[in-house]
Simulated scan of single mutants.
Amino acid sequence: MTGNGGEQRLAVFGAGVMGIGIATLAIGRGVPVTLVDVDQARLGTARRRIRDELRLAQMMGALPRSGPTGELQFAESVAAAADATWVIEAITEVAELKTKVHREIAAAVAPGTLRVTNTSSIPVDELAGQVPAPEELAGIHFMNPPYLIGTLEVVRGPRTSERTMTAVQELLAVLGRKGIVVGDGPGFVTSRVLHRMINDAANVVEEGRATAEDVDALMEGCLGHPTGPLRTADLIGIDNLVDSLWVLHERTGDEGCRPSELLLRKVAEGNHGRKTGRGFYEYEVR
Rank of each mutant, 00 (worst) to 15 (best):
E7K: 14
E7F: 08
R9H: 12
L10S: 05
F13W: 13
A15L: 08
M18L: 15
G19Q: 08
T24K: 02
T24H: 02
L25I: 03
G28P: 09
R29G: 07
G30E: 09
V33E: 02
T34A: 11
L35Q: 11
V38F: 04
R42T: 04
L43P: 08
L54R: 10
L56E: 15
A57V: 05
M59E: 13
M60K: 15
M60D: 00
G67A: 12
F74P: 01
A81F: 02
I88M: 05
E93S: 10
V94T: 04
E96M: 02
T99H: 02
V101I: 13
E104T: 06
V109S: 06
A110R: 15
T113H: 01
R115V: 06
V116K: 03
T117W: 01
I122F: 06
A128E: 09
V131I: 15
A133K: 13
N144D: 12
P145Q: 02
T151H: 14
V154H: 01
V155M: 13
P158K: 11
R163E: 13
M165I: 04
V168G: 05
Q169L: 07
L171N: 04
A173E: 09
G179S: 08
V181T: 14
V181C: 06
V193E: 09
L194F: 11
R196N: 03
D200F: 06
V205W: 05
E207H: 01
E207A: 15
E207R: 14
R209W: 05
R209T: 09
D216Q: 00
A217Q: 12
L223G: 03
P226E: 03
L230C: 09
A233R: 14
L235Y: 07
L235D: 03
G237L: 00
N240M: 02
D243N: 12
S244R: 05
L248T: 01
R251S: 14
D254Y: 01
G256W: 04
G256Y: 05
S260G: 09
L262T: 00
E269T: 00
G270K: 00
H272M: 13
G273F: 11
R274S: 05
T276G: 07
Y281M: 10
Y281F: 15
R286N: 09
R286H: 12
